[in-house]
Design a protein around this nucleic acid. Sequence first.
DNA 1: TATTCCGATAGTGAC
DNA 2: GTCACTATCGGAATGAG
Lengths: 301, 301
Amino acid sequence: MPNATTNTSDPVVQHNDSSALKDQSFTARKRNAFSELMSPKVKLQKTPELMSHSESSSTTPVPRSINPNHFSQALLPYIQHPENYPTEVINFTDQIVLLKDKFPKSIVHLLLCARDPKYHNMNPLDAFSKEHDSDGSFLALMKHEADKARSLAASELRRLIGKHSSRQKTREQWLDLHRPDSDDKRQVDEKPPTGRDYTHEIRIGVHAQPSMASLHIHIISRDMAGEKLKHKKHYNSFNTPFFVELTEFPLLQGDNRLDREHREELLRQDLKCWRCGKDFKNQFAKLTGHLKEEVHDWKQA
Amino acid sequence: MPNATTNTSDPVVQHNDSSALKDQSFTARKRNAFSELMSPKVKLQKTPELMSHSESSSTTPVPRSINPNHFSQALLPYIQHPENYPTEVINFTDQIVLLKDKFPKSIVHLLLCARDPKYHNMNPLDAFSKEHDSDGSFLALMKHEADKARSLAASELRRLIGKHSSRQKTREQWLDLHRPDSDDKRQVDEKPPTGRDYTHEIRIGVHAQPSMASLHIHIISRDMAGEKLKHKKHYNSFNTPFFVELTEFPLLQGDNRLDREHREELLRQDLKCWRCGKDFKNQFAKLTGHLKEEVHDWKQA
DNA sequence: TATTCCGATAGTGAC
DNA sequence: GTCACTATCGGAATGAG
């Protein structure tokens, strides 16, 4: 069996489905980031005062006098002391922290956070605007980091659902027949068939109006099959224009998502299956029931 | 100890609080009507076709083609064959059946049903109108039966909560001191102090728009402390003009309860404590919490 | 749009 | 205004000596 490559469309199939060692296929870091969810209750550590917390022009849910224990500040500890959270944090630099979302709305759901305090409490629509990022350098940095995170997320998704993929199985069978010690090399193809490219199943973007004050980008697989997807706003925040892809930035000046009312309207709109478009009105339970079937098919591709 | 009388304001206090024999204080009938609630699920028996089911001018929730198994017909078996339901039916004549409400909204909650098929599916506002009861004989009959039922209900209420009553305790102490074999007859009063008159705590009336098709009159204690009082409409149906006291009939021609919209408005109105008048808006749970205290006091009277 | 808890609201099905 | 079940919708608290 050939060794793993870094090309997510040409991966080794991992047959091992247990979670014990699964992180090793995800990243070379010693950290144990993908092993488990955090404990349900965040224990906020004593945090220093924030350096800055200017009000966003796109409005913000954060109170003007910021209580570091307020729920909207729950990401702060990871940003300020990522080294203290080896279970949750996948990797970090001086600029960013990549961590697992504690309440995953899809099979793979990561958050890429900016560490610079000037982005605390700043709406991403502002942070990535011409006004605040005139030379686009911040956007470029985050796009670069997000692309790396996409690769990690794709690898993790492949590890988790690759065994269901028909393309993956085809590749696996070819590799079995062509392994160095095989007697049976009837196939004459020069190269193995490509496996599924899971990077295409990863979406990258921000919420037009986040509740968490720390600037964060969602790195999320397409499925919406996460255990913590519990209501309509969860779903619509990822499956309407409320979810702003990073490629959309900087937004045009008249973008209607700069209007608070429009954002709330997006979250209230009818639930529609991301895969087949079926309209479930307000029936969230019906939607999730339907999604189980859709995701079953989606895994087969 | 003197024997029981039929005067509800001059009762024997029953110290026995167990349910095994409690029916004996309620009625001389052999029936076991007050022992327990029916099983939660009504098993409708196969019923003969209804004789008549004219539409009420006050509108009716009953479909035009009546299915005898429809929920609105659930009282029919008791009316047609009261003798088959000794547990639920307290007594009956050719004209009426008196039975325990299976879903009591107060500590005592009885239903007095008319047996004549011409009242099936007739709104009580019509049945007791000049048009349908020009000589008032039907109203007179039902008032007479309801008054008898009131006495039974009052006795049952006394049996259930009399031990909490201060007036009842005063009477009890006097009777203790004056019992035939007592050594201590220091009291010189000629007559025992009256106990609480529980007939004043029994209300008699109909719902302005019943869901059950069979004409029925509620005989219900004042408390609203029944286990089956579960939502706002339950409460308001007994504590707004939606509850039409039998003494109000026949209604004046312009009575606004003849209007369906007005009836629905009555059920939607703010929840107000029947005892102190406090407004609980839509907060049903807060109301029932409050009622526990009020009913505790009410029992003391 | 953070979660969680509680509770009010709304629709359905009942044979 | 029948009940019981499911689920949607709506507010409030959320820390901590």
